[in-house]
């Protein structure tokens, strides 16, 4: 057989592969991933996905459509309540005030209480660039990129959209945003989280609040599910917030079914007469020690 029948295609293929190799090598040298928008460094929709479902803890409150199980905060995809996903809703949310879609999303992360969706509580979401989550600006950019790729459905976000995001971020990151945070009148002293576990059990908190992965002694009729799920609450909320929730349950009532009683107040009883100060301090320490997984 004529060797060139194999030789010519093989040679041709080799030439094309060498060319492709040089292109990939040169791109690597510049630190760019092959294909994808030219966001600098590690900012990418993939990184955003990791952060959303991981250290950003967004998933603990927000689901995206059918993904995730959190109910606490607005679903970022579509569900019974929302017919459009967030990347569409955001365009009209504050349109009358001249907010672009990107600006609205950025504001919801840096200053969540500036606009709270109807049916959800104010003060529930804290600025994410602050503790306890304290994502860096770049991480937040990645998360927004993830959302704007329609939660991973698209490959990349157009450059000018990302530019708008970065612009808005600069405004919010540099400005001293006044948020209606709970400013404690006094700091909560450090308590003993282990003791706090027993306080939780004694006070029968587990009869209304579920904590994944923890076993308590029998409570009675209800076994969690009456009040918000407290799994990993320590990662999401500050010490002061937890202290307030115990001391004054009506200050912030989490949105959701059945958390409010008929009188419009929280169903959670008050423990002013039944809890000692020490127990309170330890309980708060215990709650604050509850870390989410992942």
């Amino acid at each position: 057989m004529n060797p060139h029948v194999i030789g010519i295609p093989a040679f041709g293929l080799a030439v094309l592969l060498v060319f492709a190799f040089f292109g990939i090598w040169v791109t690597d040298l510049q630190g760019q991933k092959s294909g994808g928008s030219q966001l600098s460094g590690d900012i990418s929709a993939e990184a955003g996905r990791e952060i959303f479902w991981g250290k950003g803890k967004c998933y603990t409150c927000h689901s995206i459509g059918g993904e995730g199980s959190a109910q606490r905060c607005p679903n970022l995809g579509t569900n019974d309540q929302f017919s459009d996903p967030i990347w569409v809703r955001a365009a009209v949310r504050k349109q009358s005030e001249g907010y672009s879609r990107e600006r609205y999303i950025v504001e919801s992360i840096y200053d969540p209480n500036a606009y709270v969706v109807e049916g959800f509580s104010k003060g529930l979401m804290k600025p994410i660039n602050k503790p306890p989550i304290a994502l860096t600006d770049d991480e937040i950019t990645s998360v927004i990129a993830y959302l704007l790729t329609e939660a991973g459905a698209n490959d990349a976000v157009p450059e000018d959209v990302m530019a708008a995001v970065l612009d808005a971020q600069r405004d919010f990151a540099s400005a001293k945003v006044a948020t209606e945070e709970f400013v404690p009148g006094m700091p909560v002293p450090e308590g003993d989280a282990e003791e706090g576990f027993y306080v939780f059990e004694e006070m029968k908190c587990h009869s209304c609040h579920k904590i994944d992965g923890m076993e308590f002694e029998a409570a009675g009729d209800a076994e969690g599910g009456v009040g918000p799920d407290l799994t990993g609450i320590g990662d999401i909320q500050t010490l002061e917030y937890l202290a307030e929730s115990v001391m004054d349950p009506n200050a912030i009532i989490v949105a959701g079914d059945g958390f409010k009683g008929d009188d419009g107040n929280s169903k959670m009883p008050e423990f002013h007469d039944t809890m000692t100060l020490r127990e309170f301090i330890d309980l708060v320490a215990f709650l604050s020690s509850l870390k989410a997984e992942g």
Partner: peptide, 19 residues
């Protein structure tokens, strides 16, 4: 260009596509 693909492809994408 406000389409979803208005970003400039990298050289790697180019060499693979052109190849």
């Amino acid at each position: 260009d406000t389409s979803a693909q208005s970003w400039t492809p990298t050289n790697a994408t180019m060499t693979i596509t052109v190849g």
